[in-house]
Design a protein around this nucleic acid. Sequence first.
DNA 1: CACCTGATGTCAGTCACTGCCATCGCGTAG
DNA 2: CTACGCGATGGCAGTGACTGACATCAGGTG
Lengths: 188, 188
Amino acid sequence: MSRWEPNARERLAKAALELYSERGYERTTVAEIAKRAGLTERTFFRHYADKREVLFDGSNHLQDLFVKAVNDAPESAAPIDIVAAALEAVSEVFVDRRAFARKRQAVITANAELQERELIKLAALSAALTDALRRRGIAEPAASLTAEAGLAVFRIGFERWVAPGEERPMWPLMREALAALRTVAAGA
Amino acid sequence: MSRWEPNARERLAKAALELYSERGYERTTVAEIAKRAGLTERTFFRHYADKREVLFDGSNHLQDLFVKAVNDAPESAAPIDIVAAALEAVSEVFVDRRAFARKRQAVITANAELQERELIKLAALSAALTDALRRRGIAEPAASLTAEAGLAVFRIGFERWVAPGEERPMWPLMREALAALRTVAAGA
DNA sequence: CACCTGATGTCAGTCACTGCCATCGCGTAG
DNA sequence: CTACGCGATGGCAGTGACTGACATCAGGTG
């Protein structure tokens, strides 16, 4: 038997989400999170850079997924179709995660600091997408705009997917948002 | 003669930008900013909610401008043309502010926390634009997407406008980015 | 002249976050 | 088998952002 319980990082993330849900982000101290996870405050900061980051562990994974999907799109695809393919691939991964996503999103929506962190994660994702598109030979500013527009679609689709009462899977919602973007940009 | 020097708020903003430029945001303490402005730390926090906000006093003004321009666009204009009109109106206001904008932007670019704050200000702007578009009868998700796409154009245009060496006025840069968006979204 | 108001100062306190050093079970070189 | 180093953790003091409560005082008001 090892000296410490395993999965310290996961225990911290779980404790944090619980506490943020129960009494709100601001009224939760890092010491409380650590205590619930059976650890100390100092150890929390060894696993997560700050009190917000504990909610954003999945961001890197999402970014990798997006980039991989862009890389895997057919050679001949137009920028907007590459983005569509990436959105479809990413949508698959969220199957069975709606309950967790709703809980997490409720916490984030209730606090401006957490929204800031979410926005910068999305901005990093946008930059990674832009890079991936440029590596496929798409020039600026088309690469940036495609990434930005694609993420706008993702945000709106995700927002609807986690909305209370919504039960459709993610991909159809993404497809709807994408169609709306095409219409708007065409000048309708 | 009054008891205190006037324009405390402006003095704080000026001192903050100077210090953030000189030694970086992180290595500047609020006490130092207050001291340079001839005030105390406590007074700083009476004028600005936090250490970051002192760089974002102009955000509300920008948002008002955007919304007004949307409201003033011709009745018959399509969503994307409303956004174009707003971008043109906003561009006028930045004439003669390039030096200040560059200094401020350099500080923000050098620090992740400041970028977070900038992103949430832009998100608030996006929400305000969405509202304004909806009040003009544009339905969702077209309103959101138009606002998001419009802001993507603004970000890219602004980025180029403050880039070193760039001397063209803002509006032509915005027009170029807008044209690129149309092309991308059309599926080219 | 007495009173009120608004902008500021003072001070103590909380909490996020960091640097430094100590602890100790475990694997491994010798 | 033993000594040694490693890795994850704890303990602790310190800095700095931010807040709440109370004091101060010039100038306007009745």
